[in-house]
């Protein structure tokens, strides 16, 4: 078939291949502590840079602005607000989802950053930017030290 007539990749004879590797990631110094706090104590921690007056969530061991080491850790309230959100109807491979997934960036008072997570106990058309939400954790026995130890954030009345 002449090259200029090909409009569909599937009409050609392609060579198929995969990359035969997978990733195994350690959480690092800050991540280890952050996720162990969620697992053991069910609390979100932030790391504070006093000179820049910023509290990083997720916490880091350094301030990206002044490069100083962050040693002051503090608990963040488990109530925040929806900074922005999307309602996803497709999965990673482009397949339609049976139930749409609401994914939000949750911000917290006085915090630089926030947490990307799912919203639950709410219908997509009820979600709005600025909506107050609260963290819902898995039961302690089911927590493994992962971002999924948080089941979702759900709306609250304030």
């Amino acid at each position: 078939m002449p090259v200029d007539k090909i409009t569909q990749v599937s009409q050609t004879k392609p060579w198929h291949g995969q990359i035969p590797v997978y990733g195994q990631y350690t959480y690092g110094i800050a991540g280890e502590r952050f996720f162990r706090e969620i697992k053991a104590n069910g609390r979100i921690m932030g790391a504070k840079c006093s000179s820049c007056n910023l509290t990083y969530v997720p916490p880091r061991i350094y301030c990206e602005r002044c490069f100083s080491e962050l040693t002051e850790w503090l608990q963040i309230p488990d109530r925040g607000a929806v900074h922005t959100f999307t309602v996803s109807h497709v999965d990673l491979d482009g397949n339609r989802l049976d139930e749409p997934l609401i994914v939000a960036f949750v911000e917290f008072d006085g915090v630089h950053g926030g947490i990307v997570h799912r919203l639950g106990e709410v219908e997509p058309d009820q979600v709005y930017i600025g909506m107050p939400v609260e963290m819902r954790l898995k039961s302690k026995a089911k927590r493994t030290g992962s971002i999924l130890d948080i089941s979702y954030f759900k709306p609250i009345r304030v």
Partner: peptide, 9 residues
């Protein structure tokens, strides 16, 4: 230590 795994699809 905590770690997580991921396989590219």
């Amino acid at each position: 230590v905590l770690f997580t795994e991921w396989e590219p699809n």
